[in-house]
Design a protein around this nucleic acid. Sequence first.
DNA 1: TTGATTTTAGACTATTTAGTCTAGTTAAAG
DNA 2: CTTTAACTAGACTAAATAGTCTAAAATCAA
Lengths: 189, 189
Amino acid sequence: MKYSTRDKILDAVYKLVYINGYNGTSIDMILKECAIPKGSLYHYFKSKKEMVLAVVKERIAPKMYEFYDLKKVKEENSIDTMIRAILKVSKKEELVKFGCPLNRLNQEMSPVDDDFDKAINLIYERMKSDILSVLKDSSIKPDVDMDSLAEFIIATVWGSLSLSPKHSSKKRYLNTINHLIDYLKSLKN
Amino acid sequence: MKYSTRDKILDAVYKLVYINGYNGTSIDMILKECAIPKGSLYHYFKSKKEMVLAVVKERIAPKMYEFYDLKKVKEENSIDTMIRAILKVSKKEELVKFGCPLNRLNQEMSPVDDDFDKAINLIYERMKSDILSVLKDSSIKPDVDMDSLAEFIIATVWGSLSLSPKHSSKKRYLNTINHLIDYLKSLKN
DNA sequence: TTGATTTTAGACTATTTAGTCTAGTTAAAG
DNA sequence: CTTTAACTAGACTAAATAGTCTAAAATCAA
């Protein structure tokens, strides 16, 4: 099980684009980061854009889905499963430090590039439906609109993570997100 | 009262950087947008960075403060003033379409540039204290932590606005933000 | 009007950018 | 072992990049 050149590239691009953004990351930075020659890079990917789109699908997407595949603890109300997922976010240091990688790329690329917009939206919709499937078998007051609640959860988590990355800390995230948790608890039937 | 070259530049840069980001906006794009020669540009600003920092201070900042200087309606609980401010955001088409300009720039520049980080943080802190001063004379349940509540409000609004700019609409914002409003109402004493 | 200052004009430069191309090397398959 | 395919290597290109420079024009103050 060796560390393939392609994987090396995707890891480097993920890391660099996460922090510097798409336009802030040059091919040369990538080559330096993974110490490979240009020929190899363009052997695996036909352009920078295709490369970063591969990162979206193969690196960012799995990281996003990861947060909502919590196994339900027996007898637990599903809303508590949701709360556990939200709290678990604080354990991922890079998220608390640099914000959500999907959200970052979304803000930079969605308004100016259709392919990025589509790729990112696909992941967003899947996240949303994952959340919905957790919420739907929880006992929530009947008058609550589930769809907008799922969006509210994502928006709040993303927003909390995006508050001034350099200064945000685990504690700050938890303080902010605590209000979301209180709200979710208040929706229990 | 003429439209000065400097203002013309700041307006163009605001618009271009808002949509394309800092690294996605070139000097040539700016020159084309405001139809001035390079000499003029570099007469008013010594570098691209200084130019965009001026946009942050002179264009973005006022737009941000604008949303929290609502006059309190007589007899109104201040929390309702807050809610009115949050709802008013939906009336600004560009916000709903492209997200919060401060948040966008923050995500792109704060992790990689100290000067941007500082300038943006200053605005953020002022917004937060504006919100706090509205909240502090409202009748909110005593056990609520005001500071994190102010951050929660900003995070949620920013997050709601950042959900997939291309597809977000006024209605989507309002649906999402409605949960925040319900939560705020529940905090009334 | 004159003289000083501010603003405009855009050609020019050095660097960086994404991407190409061809030759060489390594690995896989028979 | 030999042949074919996958991969590496990096020099090279054309375009775009931020920023400089000098001279001309417009504006302002006396």
